[in-house]
Amino acid sequence: MFEKLMNIDRRIIFVLVAVVVIIPTLIPIRLPTRVAEPTQKLYDYIDELPPGSTIIMAFDYGPSSLAEPEPMAKAVLQHCFNKDVRVIGITLYANMPTLADKLMQKIATENGAVYGEDYTFLGYRPGALQVILGMGTNIAGVFETDYHGTAIAEIPMMENITNYDQIDLLLDLAAGSSTEAWIIYANTRYNLKIAAGVTGVIIAQMYPYLQTNQLVGFMPGYLGATEYEKLLNAPGDGTIGLNTASFVHLLIIGLVALGNIAFFIQRRREE
């Protein structure tokens, strides 16, 4: 019996995963969350920015991993627009401009923000490191026009922005190693304040930078998005996603425990 349990058909596991993903998505449950320090720090930093400040939001993820960073982007954009903080969107990912542009437009419309005055989207340029370094000397030298083809000089909110000296924060929404590149090249060389919102797999990499204040704060995966939504008192996609993730986590923990129980009983019998 334990031999069978240890070699359970993987299709049974696939069905179980599908069930624990589908049910909490269809029947949302609000689970209590406490806000951890990294997210609180980011929220406080943005909340204390005076109206008229400018942040850059780098959409450094692709369609494959948007489930986690997108709720973070929505929450922070909402926060910025409500605080009259201006947002410049960019991406280092070639397959991201369309999604990022649409997302910024959607959240701006919901919050009454005006393109060119409260936010702008500059799009994508190849060569991540060169883009990061180049923007430090002259943003218009890297992005001559925005995503829609308007010259930078003709965008009202870009009037007094030349380089990172006029930027109060860069928030990197990342599914890869881009946050480390922003820290190494933009923070170390140009003293640009960096924050991040990262997918679950790279959370652990962010802690050394948080401890040295090279990161002002960061949102760790779905949990970070949920925490930010809680601070805004506006539950959204992050909260829904975290609830679903909760049950998948429980299933995997249960499966690992079951697998180990079967393994130990089997081994004892063999001895």
Partner: peptide, 25 residues
């Protein structure tokens, strides 16, 4: 977008199956 998302989503199923089989003390 859907193809990219699908490829990444499949990971959840394979991770669950792999964790059950390989994650042994």
């Amino acid at each position: 977008v859907p193809m990219d998302a699908t490829m990444f989503s499949l990971l959840a199923f394979f991770i669950a199956s792999a964790a059950y089989r390989a994650f042994r003390a």
